[in-house]
């Protein structure tokens, strides 16, 4: 059956209120594999493990169908800004 990119986005949007979100369906169509990049204030003061747990929890229903979920980034808006700046100053990185 699988899950759609839109379902993943809408669950993450409603539960983590992200300021930036990028969901990539890497399943090749079956809807069982996603790469997620998410920026949210709710990650503030949380360790990476806790942030990933928050993403997992937000996608609890979807995870039943998802085989592979890769959280590439789970950062705060502040960290995101720094990442963007460092990417701009060093485009090759």
């Amino acid at each position: 059956m699988g899950v759609t990119k839109e379902q993943v986005e809408s669950s993450l949007n409603s539960k983590l209120n992200p300021s930036h979100i990028e969901v990539l369906d890497t399943s090749g169509g079956c809807g069982a594999s996603f790469v997620v990049e998410i920026v949210s204030e709710q990650f503030e003061g949380k360790r990476l493990l806790e942030r990933h747990r928050m993403v997992n929890a937000a996608l609890e229903e979807e995870m039943k169908e998802i085989h592979a979920l890769s959280v590439k980034k789970a950062v705060t808006p502040e960290q995101w800004k720094k990442l963007q700046e460092s990417n701009q100053s060093n485009p090759a990185a």
């Binding site: 990476l48 979920l69 890769s70 590439k72």
Partner: peptide, 18 residues
């Protein structure tokens, strides 16, 4: 929810991304 799961010193450390 997924594997691999890494434990260090008796504590769950994380999955692949972490």
């Amino acid at each position: 929810p997924t594997f691999p799961q890494l434990y260090i010193d008796g504590e769950f450390f994380g999955g692949c991304d972490i």
